[in-house]
Structure formats: structure tokens, C-alpha cells
Amino acid sequence: MSDSSTKTHTVSVRLVKESPLKRYASAFAVPIGIVLLLIVGSILSDRFLTVGNLTNVIINMSIVGIIVVGMTFVFITRGMADLSVPATVAVGGILVLSLDQAIGTIPAAIVGVLVAGLAGVVNGLLIGYAKLNPVITTLATGIIVLGIAQAFVGGVIVYGDDTAAKEFINGRLFGVVPVIVLIFLVVVIAGHLVLSRTVYGRWTYAVGSNPDATEASAVPVRRVKAGAFVLTAALAGFSGVLLGISLQAARPAIGAGYEFDAITAVVVGGVSLLGGSGSIPRAIGGLLFVQLLTNIMVLQGVPSEPQGMVKGALIAGAIALDVWLRRKGGRE
């Protein structure tokens, strides 16, 4: 169709050049932020930069951290968010404590995770296969699952009495590394490896970035999307189990707020709501950032309530930044 007299104008119209600004800002924002916080924190309080304090920070973030791993998958696959986390956490905690006397703690833990995973399967089917809106669906299933969990225990607080397990979870390996942190690290590393090195992980990115092209490349798109929700539910259940064991008490409200903490962490870490990009290290970086910020505020004596305000402002700020960077980088 083109004849030899074609002249080409040099107008870059379809090439999307990755603006260096976006690339660097996006990669280094969080680590720089963490460093800044470390500096600011140590200035504001001598107790900040101590091993004891920092260890506390990491212990506190372990439970949420496990959930963050799942939530990252959900985000990357463009599943928006999983708001049924409070319910699945509660399921894990409640089941492990109600069943541990009957069948032992570890089997009870497994049951807890499995049942939570079941809730995730329901989410996955509704969202991945029936293509319902993830927000409303996970909200609704969360309520249902929580209700079932409460019905199961008659609406009261469940107590356990396995002090051995409690001490183990709350203790330290070789007297140094807190067990719970170890578990958290194992989950994080496993999650990262799955996301970055396995077929399923690659499919997750592809589905989130361009579901049509991925479908046309013979990838089981619906299964991948559903899987993210199953994973998140199971991980949330697992963290509920850990929580339950460590406290030996579980209220139905035990998981309240974890979904927001997880979402905040993921968003601050720069994982995009639109899917296709991000990673577990980033999400954990975001989590660390938020936890350090919270810690600084606690050390300064700021009561817990304004902390929530800061968190809310953080989410908004992080997303706005992401949107702005995307537009600068030429992507809508």
C-alpha cells in the first residue's frame, strides 16, 4: 500500500517510552521513604532505633504481612481487593481454638486454613467465573462467612488452653528469632518465589495486565483470577490461626481492620490497583513503611485514633501519586 514516495514525519505517537522519572520514582520511593522514617524516628525518640523496638515492629507486622502476600496477588491480577479478610481471619482463629481439644492443635489449624480457603473458593467462583464485582462480592461473602463462624460458636468468645502452642508461637527460635517472624518470612519468600518464578505467578501478571491477550494465549484466565482469592482467604485463615494460638482467645471481631491494613500496605508499596505490576517485596516494603510510621507515632505518644487518619491519608496520597505517575509516563 505504501508507495516509494512515502515521507515519514518523526512524531512519536505510539511508542510508550518509560519515562525515567517514573521508573526511578516508582522503584525507589518506598526504600527512600523507609530510610527517611528511620532517620526521623531516631531523631524523635532514642527508643526508636533499638533492637527491641524494631523487633517489636517486625513482630507486629507479621500477621498482617501474611495477609499482604495474598492481597498482592489479588491486586496484581486486577481483582481489585478482597474485603472478606476479617471473616477468614476469624474463621481461622475460631476454628483452631474450638477444635484443638478434640483433634489437636495442628490438625485444628489445618482445618481452619482449609475452611477459610473454602470461603476463598466461593469468592473465586463468583468473581473469576461469574465475573461479579469483587468489592461487593467479597463484602457479602465476608458477612456470610463471619455469620457462619459466629453461629458455629454460638456468638461468644472462644478460648483455648494449649499453652504449649501459645508459648511456641510467641517464643523465639534459638532465643533470637521470634517464631512468628520466621513464619512470616517463610510465607513472604514462598509468595515471592511463586509470583516471580512460577507459571502461575507469570500468569497472574499477564491476566492483570491484559486479560484478552492472555486468554488468546491459551492461559486459563478465570482460574488464575479465582486462585488469587483462594490464596488470600487461605493465608488470612492461616494468620487467624496464628493469632488465635498466640492469644488463646478468639472473638469474631478478631480480624477487624486487617483488610484495610493489608490494602494500605499494598497500595503504599506501589502495587497498582489496575493490575499487571508490582511485587511482594514492594508490598512488604509498603507494610514496613506503614508500620514504622505507626511505631513512630506510638513512641511519640500519639493515640491510636489519629493514626487511622494518617493511614487513610496515606492510601489516598499513594494512589494519587500512582495515577499521576502513570499519566506522566504516558499510560492511562
Binding site: F260, G308, G312, I315, I319
Partner: peptide, 9 residues
Amino acid sequence: LASMLFFRA
């Protein structure tokens, strides 16, 4: 979601 957290806090 963010504003909800904020207002609640």
C-alpha cells in the same frame, strides 16, 4: 475506602 478510614479515625 481511604476517606472512610480517615473520617472514622
